[in-house]
Design a binder for these strands. Structure first.
Lengths: 111, 111
DNA sequence: CGTATATTCAACCAAATGGTTGACCAAAAC
DNA sequence: GTTTTGGTCAACCATTTGGTTGAATATACG
């Protein structure tokens, strides 16, 4: 009964995880670097990354001792289709998206 | 820190609630009728409806002693925009959506 | 070699979630 | 006016969630 929409939407329901996805939009990142801007233990971020991985929203590849996280935007496709079924929403309103990013991205204190 | 993407995505993460939304796509419904196809107490469905209402995904209006539930698809807009920021997904793939409905709608045992 | 770095694991905790039941209240029906 | 009907409330319960800490593991550095 539990399909993957469950896990995808649940993964997206947490602001920390959405912020992580937004960060990975820029570039692949190591776990430690992902954790850096958050006021939260590394272990906590590690758990969030596992949840995102299980939802298919990111993939993790270990090279040497660092584990690289890579965005997998295709995992959003099914969820997007489901939502589109309820109405035609603006296809890609980049302005609106940027606004979300500003609100959701953790404050990176380096200028 | 908690914005409404939190509540919308969290509301969508439950299969019962997604099924309810899909049912309301057809028509407005009374709470009792919404609850009917589910093997779950009326109180449980009532709670789900409250969560959907708080997320803005439905509205409820009491007329007489029956409370009518109405889909509010606009509440999905922000979440949709957010997701679209990660990639261009098929605008409206109705076939794919129908497939979700088949999987997710509770079996209505009347032919 | 020994030590530092990157990441996870395990145990624990508080709070939230999804469900139950039974009492309750308002509107309708008889 | 009594009884259904429609729906919520309150208390409770088990499980999940999001976080902590400290120990453990594996790779790299000097």
């Amino acid at each position: 009964m539990s399909n993957d929409l469950d896990t995808v939407f649940a993964a997206l329901a947490d602001p920390t995880r959405r912020a992580i996805l937004a960060m990975l939009l820029e570039d692949d990142m190591a776990v430690t670097d992902v954790a850096d801007p958050f006021e939260m233990s590394l272990a906590a971020i590690s758990k969030h990354l596992i949840i995102l991985t299980k939802a298919g929203l990111i993939s993790q590849e270990k090279r040497g001792r660092v584990k690289w996280c890579k965005l997998e935007p295709d995992a959003l496709r099914a969820a997007s289709v489901w939502m589109q079924g309820f109405g035609q929403f603006e296809p890609v309103n980049l302005d609106a998206f940027e606004r979300f990013l500003e609100v959701e991205l953790p404050a990176t204190d380096d200028p």
